[in-house]
Write a protein that binds this DNA or RNA. Sequence first.
DNA 1: ATGGCGGATCTTATCCGA
Length: 267
Amino acid sequence: MPIRVATWNINSVRLRLPLVMRLIASNAPDVVCLQEIKCRNEQFPAAGFAEAGYVHQAVNGQKGYHGVAIVSKLPLAETAVHEFCGKGDSRHISAVVGGPGARFRLHNFYIPSGGDEPDPEINPKFRHKLDFLAELSDWFDAPEFGAGHVAVGDFNIAPHENDVWSHKQLLRIVSHTPVETDALNAIQARRDWVDLLRRHVPLSEKIYSWWSYRARDWDASDRGRRLDHIWSSPDLAPACTGAEIVREARGWTEKPSDHVPVIATFG
DNA sequence: ATGGCGGATCTTATCCGA
């Protein structure tokens, strides 16, 4: 029985619950990982997801900003939250998904955006982003991460040249600066995490999961970035039979999220 | 013609995202 895992920065789950329902109707994910839910746990639209069959839920929200959640048709076990940088914000939640066939711990991340200025000496948000990446690297050093883990979410970094519309023009733009892309690529390499989208789409092909709200016509200008990722530990990668970016979701309704879903299928 | 938008809250102003 395959397991389809979706990740989506939804930019307010209360406002865009109907959009998640549309994804559910069109792509039938078994598990949906959401970022930027922008609500407290008690405000999460739990009943709406439960009515759609996603009765298993793990929510780590906070007031107004950030916040992550996992909703699932399959049981979620051993839910856990990891704190980063001692800030008490809601940027991670994980749970064990699956059964005897395919079973893994699924991590849902919302890595800090980093602000505008890519200089940690003058921009505390960029300092926070680099500190978060350093803590993540240390955390992933634990032996348990060598197998049986899937890490998804809005990483807020487009690591490769063809993960952005113009490598040259974005080299000094936060999300594609060398200090960030080097850090993310090092984290990936240290545990042999497999970037499942790039396993199916060659590095020579441009692919994006985010387009700015400020472009007049996001589709025509197509100045996107691939900020949303699905990684698996190497043992699980052979079971991944497909991975896709749901580009059309950027045009769903008059008020879409600026991110689109990324989906991987296991088994 | 990316920074020209869009979310939540401390709401008619401000902070945040990237």
